[in-house]
Nucleic acid binder design. Sequence first.
DNA 1: AGATATATGTCAATAAGACTGACATAATTT
DNA 2: AAATTATGTCAGTCTTATTGACATATATCT
Lengths: 197, 197
Amino acid sequence: MPERSVSIATKPPPDDDRIAPVRSVLSEEEGIDFTVIELLFFAYRDFTSDPDQILAQYGFGRAHHRVVHFVNRRPGLTVAELLDVLKITKQSLARVLKQLIDTGHIVQVQGPRDRRQRELYPTAKGRALSLALAAPQSRRIARALEGSDFADRAAVERFLKNMVDPELRAQIGKTPRTDAGAGGANGDGVEENRGEG
Amino acid sequence: MPERSVSIATKPPPDDDRIAPVRSVLSEEEGIDFTVIELLFFAYRDFTSDPDQILAQYGFGRAHHRVVHFVNRRPGLTVAELLDVLKITKQSLARVLKQLIDTGHIVQVQGPRDRRQRELYPTAKGRALSLALAAPQSRRIARALEGSDFADRAAVERFLKNMVDPELRAQIGKTPRTDAGAGGANGDGVEENRGEG
DNA sequence: AGATATATGTCAATAAGACTGACATAATTT
DNA sequence: AAATTATGTCAGTCTTATTGACATATATCT
């Protein structure tokens, strides 16, 4: 056997120095904030695990979750706007969106001014799904903020917001174009048809 | 009044009521913390975009990043331990790990006590890659914490730590078994919760 | 010693979710 | 009429993950 006990690699060792194992721990000394880097990794891993379990029951994945979420948060957004927020391609969205439409979670409405556009709206079913997915995440957040005062919460929100690329920060919390804000937006989400013959 | 132009769906409408578009905005009124939910989504999306660009140059993906990171943070961990941290299967890890070994970023060392085990160590090259990947993330975090005092940072860390499933919280900040390095960092995954009911 | 269990590696098949490229259609704009 | 825009769709590829089955070396138990 040409191998020593150190290397079990099947590739021929190019140079023993180059494949020498580094046994020291990579720690914060290098001026890198590994603490927060890892905290973000673990926090997000578990944050997404909540809705994942619910989605699995529907045969959906995270892609469906993102679409359902933003359509509910910004009802009436167009396909192009959704692609921009999600930063995926049209073809990637297609399959997911089609499934959500076929299952009656989302409907498309022809744009009132530009009839080429498809405004996306949740149905009652889609609204319910969105709430069901968000509920455990919100509960997890509430638990994580237990014992936090107002300043603590503000610090967390400021940190997260500042983590976003400045030029993309505009997307955050942007309620729909029709920003009716609180007060019930459209009042009630009842149908509103346009005749077209 | 039967709707006409409202639905462009190709599927036969099962019931007009069921596919009626909901036009109201899904907002915090429902007692759900959509603000932080979306902040986490956007923050993590951009947080991972930094290393993604570097990885692309190597033909690597996020899976490689996670492996390189934890092998550097806990040099000498075994394959089984790595699988446990990443929460993926052996088969999923196999290809990624093989690539990292073949490219000389990681080496395997036979376990000193149990020779079935393979302890994973970075090479100098792997250490360098790990630092290169972490650097922009650390810079982003530092920028996001600019103007934050000690209490603010503590609030952020506490929030993130509490977002992790309690039973998995032990993995956090856990330095390697062999505490060769100075450590500092988080020490070990001690839970700190603000004394509150 | 022999049997069993463990740690790891590997082959094969599958799936979700993303990608690119190419092309079609309808509607708006020029 | 021509060009542009918004959307849809087909076809193929890639990465990362999955499960199942099986091989090998080593450790441990009886």
